[in-house]
């Protein structure tokens, strides 16, 4: 695989019941590609958090997953409200989620810190009123 294998998913922002499904699909595909369990878990957990964020904070978006032998990249792009203060959003426990989201089991303010912890590199670009793109890279355990 010197050429990347790429997958694209559209994340529906109006349907919470399907939130997380793209990450489940990615997990299955990475299993078929025979990556090790630890790498698969890191990629799928981080993508899952990002996917849920796009649904609960940004009304959906797209997920692109590019897979090489030694590296996996996940790009999550939305046209939501943007993040006013990235440093604040990155703090454990910071969340703007409302009670209805909390009652679904999200809104602990742990998603972005988890994504940072599980990925080897994470970049956020965001513009207020325009949207947010989160790019995460993972080096494959060898």
């Amino acid at each position: 695989m010197s050429e990347a294998i790429s997958f694209r998913f559209l994340i529906d922002g109006d349907d919470f019941t399907s939130a997380g499904n793209a990450s489940v699909q990615v997990k299955k595909m990475l299993r078929q590609l025979n990556f090790d369990a630890e790498t698969i878990r890191r990629v799928s957990v981080a993508m899952y958090e990002g996917e849920i964020n796009m649904v609960i904070h940004a009304n959906g978006g797209s997920a692109d997953v590019n897979v090489w032998n030694d590296r996996i990249e996940v790009v999550l792009a939305d046209s939501g409200p943007g993040i006013p203060d990235i440093d604040l959003a990155m703090q454990e426990g910071y969340s703007t989620a409302k009670d209805n989201i909390r009652s679904l089991g999200f809104g602990a303010g742990m998603g972005l810190p988890n994504m940072k912890r599980y990925s080897d590199d994470m970049k956020i670009t965001t513009e207020l009123g325009r949207g947010t793109t989160v790019t995460m890279s993972f080096f494959v355990n060898s």
Partner: peptide, 16 residues
């Protein structure tokens, strides 16, 4: 857990 939505299952699956 006390939750019963689809994300509970997906979360468990993510964590093997």
């Amino acid at each position: 857990t006390g939750l019963v939505n689809l994300q509970v299952v997906r979360t468990a699956e993510m964590m093997d």
